[in-house]
Write a protein that binds this DNA or RNA. Sequence first.
DNA 1: TTGGGCTGATCAAACGGTTTCGGAATTTTG
DNA 2: CAAAATTCCGAAACCGTTTGATCAGCCCAA
Lengths: 338, 338
Amino acid sequence: MKRQGTPSATLISELAGVSKSTVSRALAGNPSISEATRKRILKIAAEVGYEPNAMASSLVTMKSGVLGFVIASMENPFYQEHIERIARLSAEAGHQLMLFQVSATGDLLDVVPAMARYRLRGAIVIASVNSSDKALEQCHRHGIPVVLINRLANDGHTSSVLCNNEAGARVMARYLIEGGHRRIAVLSGREGSIVNRDRLIGLRAVLAEHGLTEVAELKGEFIFDKAYQVTRDYLKARPDVDAIFAVSDLMACGAMDAARDEGIRVPQDLSIVGFDGIRPASWPAYRLTTVEQPAEEMLKRAIELAARPDTGDVPSAEVVYINGRLKIRASARKPAAS
Amino acid sequence: MKRQGTPSATLISELAGVSKSTVSRALAGNPSISEATRKRILKIAAEVGYEPNAMASSLVTMKSGVLGFVIASMENPFYQEHIERIARLSAEAGHQLMLFQVSATGDLLDVVPAMARYRLRGAIVIASVNSSDKALEQCHRHGIPVVLINRLANDGHTSSVLCNNEAGARVMARYLIEGGHRRIAVLSGREGSIVNRDRLIGLRAVLAEHGLTEVAELKGEFIFDKAYQVTRDYLKARPDVDAIFAVSDLMACGAMDAARDEGIRVPQDLSIVGFDGIRPASWPAYRLTTVEQPAEEMLKRAIELAARPDTGDVPSAEVVYINGRLKIRASARKPAAS
DNA sequence: TTGGGCTGATCAAACGGTTTCGGAATTTTG
DNA sequence: CAAAATTCCGAAACCGTTTGATCAGCCCAA
């Protein structure tokens, strides 16, 4: 006897001497099945290890329980770290997660056909993937609600959940000011990125309130090596600078390494701060003070939005901002205790 | 007119004035469809943005194109870093990736029902997830070939692909010896882990060849903080030690931070080496010499094994070892140039 | 004229579930 | 005891594909 694969509901029905409708209802907990037969069916199903075929059911019910998660090949560990978080959260919400990867130079458009073929319930797209209007429009045509993380669309369909980057940058900026820093350089990311833009806006707003402007803008492009190199070059000339406000933790770590290699002590000679809350930033080599993105809440909201019950009407796009939290460690001089 | 969702093959067939069988065959490139109608159908399909329903086809063909990737909630960034790699590789191989997450205290068994419901083509399970014999047996009963990464099973069904941990440890050990190190401590991981065991075996074999044994075993449990703490405590007493052989990069980084915080210079006073090839280990803060796991090849092989064409017969389990590569950086004293 | 071999398309039956509708058996009610 | 209500279950249609069987033409040989 060669048993192969998972048994079907039909098999269960034969074993139990009932129809497959009954099996289906029994497993669904439909009250129109007597407790006795329900028990019996469940018992048999458990014995033979029956699991209903998810594809068959989503075929007939016309609804899918799988969410797409679209990532890019990227260096930033922020999203890498939270992929298991989102897997857990979506499992808790009763969804499966399917991964789609677009190359660094590619566009969301590259994976839309695959997403459509699997009739996704919804999709979550992280900031590092390029999502053209055309791609978003196609998703909409295919009936796949998409949620952008730390990015905005203006097509009226796609929702977004973002860390309140501007507000976070403000609190960090104020913290630096209170710590007595006045000559602040910024280590910025890729231009055109919302994350970069809003964090800079927040910083500059606070600086302006104090009649300041940044003393330099170093372009780190969100890349570790680039950030290291550019701040090392900058520091080599011993510029008159108090603090470096890095737009991401990854770049902040690069900057700290640059300072270390230049023999500049952090935070005694120079404060360095970041933004994101990646794991290595907490290591003793860095002890980076930063503002942490509330990844858990962000992803939870994103999942909710991506899996919104289909109300027939076109659900309007939502944009939700969630505040980050200042995490004080040792890489920046602290305000005098008051 | 409210169009919702992706059009079906039936719609295409009506638009083209043919039967849906013809549509199916046309898209499949079946030669029994004339070039003229094939062109016409393809054109219409493209116009309305048709994508075949993957669930419907896998329902009838009885084969699925989705691979499971089972991860654990874990600290080790090694697998985090390569999740996008595996997403890319499986896309190249024509498969989709579905993510399953088991909690740190959980077992593969927790996700087997979900895996079965989606009738996975195969599954790849990384080392940090606990996979009980029962779980593996259930996978087999459900007809899901599973491939373990850096772990072994002995049930005759599940394949494994591993870095050749023992060999890697040997080359690292020889490198240390050639560098003049004689008093070597080991910073070990969780006991019972194959990775830990084989790397220790490799190290000890080479030490024995030179009439040596390790001067201490520090238990880091594969956890950064633990590794930091235990080596810091160890170093505090200024033991007579040449080098620390850490069983993972993550722990090596922790050890380097401990040395730094103890004012011990690396590599002048102490060499520290790791194993894995995680990103932060390459940062200037560490410049860790290590042996890199050949993640690309390992994952590629794993995908091949997990997606092996179903030959009807039970495909026998395979175990493949792939050699790692010594990556020399600055955290260990180098052998004198010969 | 009959028949055989192609070509190009259609029919219908699966695949494994869910759901609507209806029906038999049993119980409650008049 | 008949009628009505209730309980429990089965038959069949359907979801969107694939595929084996079939079939209508057409060309050509016998």
